[in-house]
């Protein structure tokens, strides 16, 4: 038996140590907001926070997640109130939406540790794939998120 702490809630599971966290979330715990895209950590659709750091859960063995605080898109905020989610709505970022959980989680983690990233830092850190081509709006969404977060702090 393993215990995972996800979105502030404890879950008892019994799975292979090497099973990637993604599949525990999606198939065993029904937390389907975290998406499967590639299975090799290339696309970022499966991004979650492990102790506040962005991690690609398709390549993150569940054994390594035991004892950490895991946050998924479902636990990012209540009622879409996180500034990144607010910015995403303001800028009307998503199209199909499939990659957006990952884009949002990656952005939230980046801004939590670096509230005022340069354009270069943003582009080096947010490498998530989007096939609908929302990148122009993701970029605007990130900069709007940073603004909203600064306002919140004031």
């Amino acid at each position: 038996m393993q215990t995972l702490e996800i979105n502030g809630k404890k879950y008892q599971i019994d799975v292979e140590a090497e099973m990637p966290l993604l599949w525990v979330l999606r198939d065993d715990l029904g937390l389907t907001g975290t998406k499967f895209g590639c299975g090799i950590g290339e696309c970022g659709a499966c991004t979650v926070h492990i102790n506040g750091q962005a991690a690609r859960s398709c390549s993150f063995p569940v054994a390594a997640a035991v004892g950490t605080k895991i946050t998924t898109i479902e636990g990012l905020s209540h009622h879409n109130k996180h500034p990144v989610q607010q910015a995403w709505l303001e800028e009307q970022v998503p199209q199909c939406g499939y990659c957006q959980s990952g884009q949002i989680m990656a952005t939230a983690a980046l801004l939590a540790k670096n509230p005022k990233p340069t354009a270069e830092e943003v582009e080096d850190n947010i490498t998530n794939l989007c096939r609908c081509g929302t990148y122009v709006r993701v970029r605007r969404g990130i900069s709007r998120s940073a603004e909203l977060m600064r306002k919140q702090r004031v």
């Binding site: 999606r26 029904g30 937390l31 389907t32 907001g33 975290t34 998406k35 499967f36 998924t72 898109i73 479902e74 990012l76 905020s77 879409n80 989610q85 995403w88 709505l89 009307q92 970022v93 998503p94 939406g97 499939y98 957006q100 959980s101 949002i104």
Partner: peptide, 21 residues
């Protein structure tokens, strides 16, 4: 006007085919 489907697409509740349980 803003899209109707976006609020569910920013919090993980939008259900794609792969999310059917």
């Amino acid at each position: 006007v803003p899209r109707l489907d976006l609020p569910d697409k920013i919090n993980g509740t939008a259900k794609f085919g792969i999310d059917v349980r």
